[in-house]
Computed example of a mutant assay.
Amino acid sequence: MSTAPSSDLEVVSPDTCTHLTGHDHVASLSAALRGLTEQVETLDRWGRLLADVLTGPSRGRLLAAGNGGSAAQAQHLTAELVGRYRADRPPFSAICLTAETSSLTAIANDYPADELFARQVEAHGRDGDVLVLLSTSGRSPNAVAAARRARECGITVLAMTGPAPNPLAAVADETVAIDSPWTATVQECHLVALHLLCAAFDAAVLADSPRISTSNHVEVVQ
Rank of each mutant, 00 (worst) to 15 (best):
E115M: 10
F117H: 01
S137T: 07
L116C: 00
D179S: 08
R149T: 06
A169V: 10
V130R: 12
I178F: 12
A159P: 05
A159Q: 06
A170M: 14
V157N: 07
V132Q: 06
V132D: 10
C198W: 00
A147W: 04
A184N: 10
L116W: 03
M160A: 02
V176T: 06
P167L: 09
A170W: 07
A143W: 05
D127I: 13
L194Y: 13
A177V: 01
P181K: 03
T175Y: 09
E115Q: 15
P167F: 08
L158I: 10
T185L: 05
R149C: 02
P112L: 12
L194H: 07
R149A: 13
S180D: 01
A123Y: 11
A108C: 06
V157E: 05
A146R: 05
H124E: 08
L131V: 07
V186G: 03
P163G: 13
I178C: 07
A199E: 15
G125K: 03
V176F: 13
P163V: 14
R151F: 14
L168I: 09
S180Q: 08
D129E: 08
D114R: 15
L168A: 12
P165L: 02
E115A: 15
G125V: 10
E122A: 15
L197P: 03
D127V: 13
A184D: 11
R126L: 15
V176W: 02
P181F: 01
A108R: 12
Q187R: 09
R139E: 15
A177Y: 00
I178K: 06
A177N: 01
E152M: 12
T185A: 03
I178V: 11
R148G: 05
A108I: 12
R149K: 12
P141C: 09
A147N: 02
C153H: 15
D110C: 02
L158N: 08
L131F: 02
M160F: 11
P181W: 00
A200C: 09
C153Q: 15
P141W: 12
N142Q: 11
N166H: 00
A169E: 14
T136H: 09
R149H: 04
R139I: 11
L194R: 03
V144Q: 08
A172W: 00
H195V: 13
E115T: 14
A147V: 07
L196W: 11
E115K: 12
A147S: 09
Q187Y: 13
T185G: 00
R151H: 15
G138H: 05
T183F: 07
A123H: 13
A118G: 10
H124Y: 13
D110V: 03
S137D: 06
P165A: 02
A193P: 00
G138S: 11
R148W: 01
P141D: 11
L133A: 10
I155T: 04
L134K: 09
L133K: 05
A123V: 08
L133P: 03
V132M: 10
A159C: 04
I178Q: 03
D179T: 13
E174T: 12
L134N: 00
N166V: 08
H190G: 00
P165T: 05
A177Q: 03
L158M: 08
R149P: 05
L134I: 00
V130G: 14
P112M: 08
G128T: 08
E152Q: 12
A169R: 04
A184W: 10
L116Y: 04
F201D: 06
